[in-house]
Design a protein around this nucleic acid. Structure first.
Length: 260
DNA sequence: GATGACCTGTGA
DNA sequence: TCACAGGTCATC
């Protein structure tokens, strides 16, 4: 499950139920799913006999610390990943991904000495697991984004504001749906060049991002926004036509009237 | 920075 | 059969 809200829900489940339990077995049947040189053997060596001690998150990247100070595990959910602990899954079902319980979609996981388990289920295999992930390549987390951080992220870049907001090295956590919703709430056209967003609009955008993650987080996920992702619907704010474009490589919805 | 690639499932 | 999907990466 992709955007920061779903990843945070997964992190919370790991934090609540997967810590301080001795790991006895590692399930890593898919070598392709392991990234940056990580192997199943290395994971077994690093994890068996240890415990997860903390479940952290930077943007969409989950980092599991372990009882071995030198061992961290990076977990990414990709487009369709979900976390299951003791067979239970967190958060709302994914809209555009299968939520069937299919064991062969378990791309990674561990079994605990008490008989329970943590599994990462990912039908599309676009998620990833790696040892000792590089956390420095991610920008400030969107859930605690300050006005100054947003201002520095936008800078004087000549890219569309949507592309900048989704660049994980600049701000970590915003994905396609949250970005569209925040820009809709801020009345800013996603195609606007970042450098042209003035100070007033930056303040508005910062507020909109904060409101978007708070409200949609409370509602239960990235797809609970107020802007319909449907060109046959009218903008709920002003009745204007919603348009669908491709910006920053992603399907983008916006209101043709009030997003300028 | 836009594009295609990665991979697999779903629904029209 | 096709288009589409909440992400990321390499490559012009």
């Amino acid at each position: 499950m992709p955007e920061v809200l779903e990843v945070e829900a997964a992190r919370a489940v790991l934090s609540g139920y997967a810590l301080d339990r001795e790991i006895t077995r590692v399930h890593a049947p898919d070598g392709w799913f392991l990234k940056r040189g990580t192997t199943a053997a290395a994971l077994r060596h690093a994890l068996i006999g240890n415990q997860f001690t903390q479940a952290r998150r930077i943007g969409k990247q989950i980092v599991l610390d372990t009882s071995d100070p030198g061992v961290r595990v990076g977990v990414h959910l990709g487009m369709s990943g979900r976390v299951l602990v003791d067979g239970e899954e967190a958060g709302d079902p994914l809209l555009h991904a299968s939520n069937r319980r299919v064991t062969k979609w378990h791309r990674f996981g561990v079994y605990f000495a008490d008989g329970g388990s943590f599994m990462l289920r990912d039908p599309r295999r676009l998620g990833a697991v790696e040892l000792d992930p590089d956390e420095s390549r991610l920008g400030p987390d969107v859930l605690s984004l300050t006005p100054g951080q947003l201002d520095r992220a936008l800078g004087s870049r000549s890219a569309p504001v949507k592309a900048v907001l989704m660049d994980q090295a600049r701000i970590a956590g915003l994905g396609n749906l949250l970005t569209d919703e925040a820009l809709w709430r801020a009345s800013i056209d996603p195609a606007r060049i970042a450098a042209t967003i003035d100070a007033d609009e930056r303040r508005r955008l910062h507020r909109a991002i904060r409101t978007t993650v708070r409200v949609l987080g409370r509602r239960g996920g990235s797809h609970t926004g107020d802007m319909p992702r449907d060109v046959d619907m009218a903008c709920p704010r002003d009745g204007g036509a919603l348009q669908r474009r491709r910006i920053a490589g992603r399907t983008t919805y916006s209101c043709s009237v009030h997003q300028i």
